[in-house]
Design a protein around this nucleic acid. Sequence first.
DNA 1: TGTACATCAGTGAACGCGCGTTCACTGATGTAC
DNA 2: TGTACATCAGTGAACGCGCGTTCACTGATGTAC
Lengths: 218, 218
Amino acid sequence: MMSQKHATTAKRSTYRHGDLARALLDAAIDLARAGGPQAVTLREATRRAGVVPNAAYRHYASRNALLQAVRSAALAALAVAIEGQLARLPATDDPAALARASLRAVGTGYVEFACVEPGLFRTAFSVPDQLQGAAVPEKAGNTGLNPFQLLGAALDRFVDAGLLQRRRLGAEYLAWSAVHGLATLIIDGPLRGLGSNQRKLVLQNLLDMVERALSGPA
Amino acid sequence: MMSQKHATTAKRSTYRHGDLARALLDAAIDLARAGGPQAVTLREATRRAGVVPNAAYRHYASRNALLQAVRSAALAALAVAIEGQLARLPATDDPAALARASLRAVGTGYVEFACVEPGLFRTAFSVPDQLQGAAVPEKAGNTGLNPFQLLGAALDRFVDAGLLQRRRLGAEYLAWSAVHGLATLIIDGPLRGLGSNQRKLVLQNLLDMVERALSGPA
DNA sequence: TGTACATCAGTGAACGCGCGTTCACTGATGTAC
DNA sequence: TGTACATCAGTGAACGCGCGTTCACTGATGTAC
């Protein structure tokens, strides 16, 4: 019995993996997590899945197809991180306060994800989408919105609260640029050495700046 | 005579290159310009210099040494672009106006360089310096200041003009994050598709935001 | 001014590496009868 | 319930590629006499 089970397990590990597509994707995500998009390799992914290199071609058309799947997963993880920050917002019936807090939550989730998962963050933005991008569910978090859409939803609250007259074209670009730039400079750039406390301070100042820019005189 | 000259030229091209270090660096810069840091390769650089691959080791200890030289050159080119924007500022004796215009010039030079030379821009920030970084002259422009120092100088003018009480720690990080983020999103990210006009509009809005954040109530 | 020689910049050949991708195959699984 | 068979997921071997880097070499250049 025991040996039978072992035999079965051994068989499964050689032939008929079970869910190789998923196993390869998981391995590839780990590779991206540790080493960024460069580290996503068919050979290493198959190695980790305990399978011969060309077995991957049953499930992915090419190395690039696998990488794109990882990118979608990374964007989805970013969306989940942002949603996590939004979810912990205290309830309030002041729509202006909610709007401001939502925007800060989006920015905080964004930068914190970049700090905690720099490899995935880099992968998410490595071979990027077109402007509008495909709003496919693979890139979305639990709410079904991708990171850009989550930012847009936060800005909508500004309009709803009367803090913004109209959704200025490019309002999201301002917010996004500021937050994305900070994230990039922290993980890849000259702000790498910043301590956690200083990082939080800079982030707060940055969010102040964005908030003032959005709700101030325009 | 003519043939003599040809013979001499031919000799020089086989043995004794002349200034192979410089030729390799120039070739490598072209590679980075066209394909980013990934494209900087000893073999291709030597190929372009008309020389055998290992000849590079007379002048650079490794592929990485060459890449670092390219990075310094890319940062210097960025500094020159910023200096170009600063140089075309109209003369004024209003220090506040000068301060604001200087900051905008720095931001404009930064983003325009990223748009015009995306490969060099990506290379400049690919394997980045420590926080303070070595302020070595290789990375500087004509004024002897590197990009970060040029930004700092612009902020100093804010203090001098009385627009900023103190040089807030992290004030440069706000400005830098905003500008760097926009540059990144335009060349690598979801804002790639933006037309030149829209790009300028977003940049102006972004610079407004930064300016207000710096000179506004702190 | 002419010759002997040391220097050292570039040559030529080769190494080992990991990669993506292709081919013909094999044998476990699930289905049709 | 049992058997024949088609499917197709994974195997095994191999390819060509470009890369960084090493070695022993060679011969043009500039210097010392």
